[in-house]
């Protein structure tokens, strides 16, 4: 495993706040997993083409037609906070 693994950087990228205890436990578990996957380095992979779909299906495009959307009430029914038909969150600018 890379010595550069920094749990703070990764949790910051993933937007998950971690307690010190969690960091220690997760760091240890991730270490075990990353060591295990090191084995992949021994596989010869050059020239391997990547298909996103396991059956190599090719993307089908949708006709540009509008259909009925969610009812406004249904769209908002899970919103933790609402105002004038908007979702409300704490400020996203400082």
């Amino acid at each position: 495993m890379s010595e550069n693994f920094n749990i703070d950087d990764v949790s910051n990228l993933a937007s998950i706040e971690l307690s010190e205890d969690e960091k220690a436990k997760l760091q240890k578990d991730l270490q075990i997993i990353l060591e295990h996957v090191e084995a992949l380095k021994n596989v010869d992979i050059k020239d391997e083409k990547i298909d996103i779909h396991p059956l190599s299906k090719v993307l089908e495009l949708r006709k540009d037609e509008s259909k009925e959307s969610l009812k406004h009430e249904d769209a908002m029914m899970n919103s933790p906070e609402t105002k004038d038909g908007h979702f409300v969150v704490p400020p996203s600018i400082e």
Binding site: I7, V10, S11, A14, S15, I16, E17, L18, E22, K25, L26, D29, L30, I33, L34, V89, P90, P91, S92, E94
Partner: peptide, 26 residues
């Protein structure tokens, strides 16, 4: 929380269990 980012960080911290966090971080 006082900002959106802090709210997201904290919500995800409280909302996810350990195994889920582990896999997201991995």
């Amino acid at each position: 929380a006082s900002t959106s980012y802090e709210m997201m960080n904290k919500t995800r911290s409280v909302g996810f269990g350990e195994e889920v966090k582990k896999r997201i971080l991995l």
